[in-house]
Nucleic acid binder design. Sequence first.
DNA 1: ACTCTGATGTACT
DNA 2: GTACATCAGAGTA
Length: 175
Amino acid sequence: MSDFALPAPDLAPLLLGARLIVRGAGGIITETEAYTPDDPASHSFPGQTRRNASMFGPAGHAYVYRIYGLHWCLNVVGLPGHAVLIRALEPTEGLAQMQARRRRPDRLTTGPGMLAEALGITGQDDGRPFGTADFTLHLSPPGNWLTGPRIGITKAADWPRRYGLPGSAHLSRRF
DNA sequence: ACTCTGATGTACT
DNA sequence: GTACATCAGAGTA
């Protein structure tokens, strides 16, 4: 979808409020982070590799990678080399499914690793296009949003490229 | 509330 | 060998 063919800093706030449903489980996206090719913290910064290939693929597809050898993280691809990390959402569908997958059902989706686990996302979803029956992402752009420094990175950590829905109770951290 | 640590795959030097 | 877009559990307070 060309809706998604945008620079990550434009796509990231647009994805707030969007409804993400993966195989019957999901909810409303509350927190995102933008990564661009000129960003030292971005996987696309060194250029294309096997791992980040889908980050250079079509817009509106998923980029899923493994982090710390343990967890999966879900991104939405924008322009080539641009991606938006989905960090948190408000669970609305498939609650029982998500609770069964999570070790801590009190924190279902308030962090990228938890979110991927709750939604059952793995490396098999890398490169998958959004917009099929089992993999939907319906945009619903918010009127306003918060920005702040990103989380869990060391390079360019102060770039204000974390975005969140104001007042949401489902954020990985307060802004 | 906070700080520390173990778990562990993949990409990179 | 080292770094990493993390999480859970244990410890201190």
